[in-house]
Amino acid sequence: MNPPTPASAPHHRMLGASLVSRIPGASHGTLALERMEHGLFLLWLAYMGLLVFGALLLWQAGAWHRLVDADPTGLTVTIVLLFIGCSVWAGRRAWVLGWQRQRLDAQLAAAHHPTSPTGWSAEYHQGCALPGADHSIWLQVLGERAHGPHEMAWWLNGIQLKLGLLGKVIGFSILALQLGQMDSFDASQSSLLLKNLTGGLGIALLTTVTGLTGNILLGLQLMRLDRFADALVADTLAAGLTPPATPPQEPPHGDRPRGP
């Protein structure tokens, strides 16, 4: 197992990343479909199509209306909007990484032709070819280009989980306040009491479930982006490992060619 890059190491300490990494196939290298032209973006489109289809089924079943009505705090709506925004960003990032993959493949295919390649990989190779260039600095630049923007997305992914836990605390706080206001049990007010108690319990459960679901679904997208970026960096480094040219050796006896 390859060691994680310094930019992506903190991600694996988050709950969402640890849950997603245990899903079969989530932590594997790039798939054959992802190596196609904009394959990562097409895979993201297919994934989002499944999510949109599931959301439409929930809409027809009235689940979204009940979800909004049962949560007066608005945390569930905030979590859903945050998930949608981060998912759109993940799709845009998948397009950018796919384009950089095409630039690298074009650079490798035209290695023996006089071309002017573009992209992160070409910038890394051109920087390392400069006289006195520090390869470690250019490697950090390449890693930042490939993984740097994912840091904020992983942080927002953790915010979904924290908002769900915040809703859980608020719901149980409401539940505790309702119980504290009970001086005596009156059978005539049992229905109103149960309604207030289930309201606080509903806020706690719905926000927690929404936060966990958004955390896992967004974590799947970010995990594939990280793995694709890792493969892009690895292939860029492998493309730059060219064997040094062997210096010509002088014949052992002046101009006399080597031979029997």
Rank of each mutant, 00 (worst) to 15 (best):
N2C: 05
N2A: 14
P3Y: 00
P4K: 00
A7Y: 14
L15H: 06
P24Q: 03
H28Q: 12
R35C: 05
E37H: 14
L43K: 04
Y47I: 02
G49A: 13
L51P: 05
A55G: 08
L57M: 13
W59R: 09
A63V: 08
H65N: 13
D69C: 07
G74R: 03
V77D: 08
V80F: 08
I84S: 09
I84R: 00
C86V: 12
S87A: 15
R92N: 10
V96Y: 03
G98K: 01
A111L: 07
S116V: 13
P117D: 06
G119R: 02
S121E: 06
A122V: 02
E123D: 12
R145Q: 10
M152S: 11
W155K: 10
L156I: 01
N157S: 01
K162P: 00
G164V: 01
L177G: 04
Q178P: 00
D186A: 11
Q189K: 11
S191M: 10
L193V: 06
L194R: 14
L197V: 10
G200K: 04
I203V: 14
I203Y: 02
L212C: 09
L212T: 05
G219V: 05
G219Q: 02
L222G: 04
F228T: 03
F228I: 01
F228G: 06
L232F: 11
L237E: 06
P244I: 05
R258S: 14
P260C: 09
P260K: 11
